[in-house]
Amino acid sequence: MKSLRKTTFPAVISTFVICFVFWLLITWSLAVQELIAGAVVSLAVSLFAARFFIHEKAFWFLNPVKLIVGLIYCIVIFPIELIKANLDVAFRALSPKPRVNPGFIKVPVGLKSDYGKAMLANSITLTPGTITVDIEQGKNDTGNDECFFYIHWIDVKEKDRVKAGDIIKGTMEKWVRRIFV
């Protein structure tokens, strides 16, 4: 177990902003009492939770380019992958004999930051047909960081790790790299 990170001031601020926006969304009122109660609760929560919630740069979401790229990823790129995979798995399940060819594949991932890895792993899990089971991080022989995902794949078309990774990740890794490096 790694020791806990320090709670930094920018992390508290950004956690506070997110908590407060969610409070506004849920209560949907601008009465003064509601706002004060929300601010107090958000501050308490962000003091406790900031160290778990924000790990690297706290204000990355204020960078407009990354925000726009992130929006494009969430609205265009990811749904396209989602619809393709959904149709595939739906017809797999509805076909007269379930056509499955399952297996666990170890796939190399080129992302560096924790956020990027988490986002790619979540994207892969949300896509029907692939589930990220485990992540292995470490150093290779030359001392560079390397990272592998263990992915359960419902239809193993390719046993070679790199080619399988290209099929599974598709365009997603390229776009996640534009957001989180």
Partner: peptide, 26 residues
């Protein structure tokens, strides 16, 4: 519906989970 049919018909636990992602996403 496709997801539920998949949960019932798929052979093992992991394939059932894959099918249930159908319900969870689209």
């Amino acid at each position: 519906f496709a997801g539920v049919v998949g949960i019932i018909r798929m052979p093992d636990c992991f394939c059932r989970m894959q099918s249930s992602t159908n319900i969870a996403t689209l």
